[in-house]
Nucleic acid binder design. Structure first.
Length: 433
RNA sequence: GACAUGUUAGCUCAGCUGGUUAGAGCAUCGGUUUGUGGUACCGAGGGUCAUGGGUUCGAGCCCCAUACGUGUCCCCA
């Protein structure tokens, strides 16, 4: 067999323990908070029929769906899921018996045939951690999802995050107001960039897209004022759809105040657009303004029509997706990741046949006391065993050699400061912190 | 998809205007110590200089092509 150069698929990564221990912790923080807010877990297959996925995300994103080269061109054509929202909506449409309102969380890898940019936290295989609630139009849920975002990022000690809030109805209203007609989405993808480029550049791009200059001017007057919600409300007073959207945002913000989400961490932002086609109301996205190159840490919104598109009942829905890989990338770049190599607390040394039984009994005792314990499996030189323990940053090493066996004691060494004590079995668990 | 930039040991890199047998640090393994790690010293293994072609007496270095990587834009988690 010819040798194959080992490599990972572009945009996909291996994770060694020093990364995985942190990733598992982040997942655990999210899981605990999701449950605390009353959400229960579900899972859907990584693979779906292609037609279940297409036509929901918009033309651009549809091209990024990973199609499997299997039964191509037949009705069995399949693809890897692109996100968790669409498969979840499909699942809901298949389960009309669900007791509404239904709250679920879901944490799984998804795949996108994108150009990876690791520095920005962008990969082809990455974890999404979704929380969604279906079956209610109440803005209380939209606010709760923002509260969840705030709580997770606070527990993870991520500084300076900003949750941007907008509403598709406002965007539709603005489009109507400036008379942009069907160029609405072109305009918004340009405006979405405003936090990175200047208005002049956006203006040039809009002209290139052949947006009428009257529309551009009207848009500029809306954007350049750094409009507050109140000002926007006044400006768009004759646009019914915009008034609906503004009222929803006001409602969400009023609940955020009651839920104690600090105002410094969220902001109404009329330039937030988001590309996915299925959003209908609230849209949110969390960024680190001090690190603009890192993509959004989460994103989401209301998608009231999606479930009905699968033939299910017309069911309102709202959700957000936390990006594990974005959060992890941000934490790495913010130096919030302390170096950890193992979860093991104790290494029990191996001194050969005579002491094997006593050593294994110690191992069993430590494990019975919930202390993560590893036994060195070979009768190697002590130097080698110590070196192994040291390199792996295991905090303690236990030794039972001939002398310890005779005295019925155990030597416990704290690796960090080289202190060593002789203890009996019953005292050993308490001595390990 | 657009633009920029890079590819020399497992990793980070040096390698002069083209000139013998391509180097260093870190990492790995072994030794100095057969019951005690980190430090120090000694030693060992590890390279088709991304691939293919061209120029030249001679190419890691110059030229062309290809592949792959990285960064920014677009879009997103």
């Amino acid at each position: 067999m010819s040798k194959i150069k080992p490599r990972t698929f572009k945009g996909a990564r291996d994770f060694l323990p020093e990364d995985m221990l942190h990733r598992e912790r982040i997942l655990q923080v999210m899981r605990d908070i999701f449950k605390k807010y009353g959400f229960d877990p579900v899972e859907t297959p990584a693979i779906e029929y292609l037609d279940v996925l297409t036509g929901k995300y918009g033309e651009e994103a549809d091209r990024l769906i990973y199609r499997l080269n299997y039964k191509n061109g037949t009705k069995d054509e399949a693809a890897l899921h692109y996100d968790l929202t669409v498969p979840f909506s499909r699942m809901v449409a298949m389960h009309p018996e669900l007791n509404l309102p239904f709250r679920r969380y879901q944490m799984q890898p998804v795949w996108r045939a994108d150009r990876p940019q690791p520095h920005q936290g962008r990969f082809r295989e990455f974890y999404q951690c979704d929380v969604d609630c279906i079956g209610t139009d109440s803005m209380i849920v939209d606010a709760e999802l923002i509260a969840i975002t705030h709580e997770i990022l606070s527990v993870l000690k991520i500084p300076g995050f900003l949750i941007k809030i907008n509403n598709r109805k406002i965007l539709n209203g603005i489009s109507e107001y400036i008379g942009a007609g069907d160029q609405f989405s072109d305009i918004y993808t340009s405006i979405d960039k405003l936090d990175k480029v200047t208005w002049t550049e956006v203006e040039a791009e809009l002209k290139e897209k052949k947006v009428p200059s009257s529309a551009i001017e009207k848009l500029h007057s809306l954007i350049s004022k750094e409009l507050t919600l109140d000002a926007l409300k006044n400006e768009l007073k004759n646009i019914e759809i915009a008034q609906h959207g503004i009222k929803e945002v006001e409602e969400v913000i009023s609940y955020l105040k009651i839920l104690n989400v600090p105002e410094s961490h969220y902001k109404f932002d009329v330039s937030l657009a988001r590309g996915l086609d299925y959003y209908t109301g609230t849209i949110v996205e969390t960024k680190l303004p001090a690190y603009p190159h890192i993509g959004s840490l989460n994103g989401g919104g209301r998608y009231n029509g999606l479930i009905a598109s699968f033939g299910g009942k017309d069911t309102p829905a709202v959700g957000i997706s936390m990006g594990l890989d974005r959060i992890f990338t941000a934490m790495q770049q913010l130096n919030l990741i302390e170096e950890v190599k193992t979860a093991t607390k104790v290494l029990v040394g191996n001194f050969g046949k005579e002491t094997l039984e006593a050593s294994l009994k110690l191992v069993a005792y430590l494990r019975a006391n919930n202390i993560n314990t590893e036994f060195y499996p070979e009768d190697a030189k002590l130097k080698k065993q110590f070196s192994y323990c040291d390199k792996k940053n295991i905090p303690y090493m236990c030794i039972i050699g001939e002398s310890e066996l005779q005295e019925n004691k155990i030597s416990l060494k704290k690796m960090k400061d080289s202190t060593q004590v002789s203890l009996s079995l019953e005292d050993i668990a308490a001595a390990i912190l």
